[in-house]
Nucleic acid binder design. Structure first.
Lengths: 125, 125
DNA sequence: CTTGAATCTGACACCAGTGTCAGCTTCTAC
DNA sequence: GTAGAAGCTGACACTGGTGTCAGATTCAAG
């Protein structure tokens, strides 16, 4: 499929898709004229990449991680090296920390929101 | 307390503390010579600010949120306006979404990590 | 062949908090 | 009074994924 369709199906901008390719995260065949031609599996892959970006992993980490993932494309999955496993464990711990922080912040928001919804005036608890 | 001590006690750089002040997130008295002099309550406030930053809120949102928070400094808490409550609800939803994404990404990492720890070779599941 | 839509490359800007450096002033303790 | 530590302001850079624009090329349909 072409980049436009992939962008639409993944809700990721064409700009980002080209960036992913430059970072080695995504591969595309080329038409004789040079236009990108993505396999169907690219959709899942892009979504997965976005998930990992959202989790705060940088391109460099993701590019190492991808070949170790059990993709739908049935590509020859590599096994993570011990070194990579350790890197990923660090990321995992970081994610746990982020989740905790998010929940704490959510509590703060909830407190303010519920205080505003309660009938008590601000100065008299 | 001085900025150095506050930085040490909160593990936040002096640079960031000055930035917080410029954004209106943090207040400091000044010595006759112009050095910042923070009240003890600043420690809690800075930590709270960091939490909210970690949750993805920008300065502008935090600056509105802070006066509505039940601080240890016993300052006259304002009640969030309906408009602010709605803004915060949006943030809350965003936080929920982020948590979900983080957990999904964590699952991906766990899969790779456990695959590397299991005795199965990569190509034969 | 032609035309309009889609794609290509490359470059510049942005965000928003943070790091860092320079040059100067203030504080603290001897 | 003086030396060294600590603080001040202001400016510039960075991060790293993304938006956006320009100009050229390709694709697909008439």
């Amino acid at each position: 499929m072409r980049i436009g369709e992939l962008a639409q199906r993944t809700a990721v901008s064409e700009r980002s898709l080209r960036y992913y390719e430059k970072q080695g995260l995504l591969y595309a065949d080329r038409t004789p004229g040079g236009h990108r031609d993505y396999p169907d599996t690219a959709v899942d892959r892009v979504i997965r990449i976005q998930e990992l970006f959202a989790a705060g992993l940088c391109s460099a980490k993701i590019v190492q991680l991808l070949p170790c993932m059990r993709d739908k494309d049935g590509g020859p999955s590599e096994t993570a090296t011990p070194w990579l496993v350790q890197e990923l464990s660090v990321e995992r711990a970081r994610i746990d920390g982020m989740v905790e922080e998010l929940l704490r912040a959510r509590e703060v928001l909830d407190e303010v929101i519920s205080a505003a919804s309660s009938p008590h005036p601000p100065t008299t608890p």
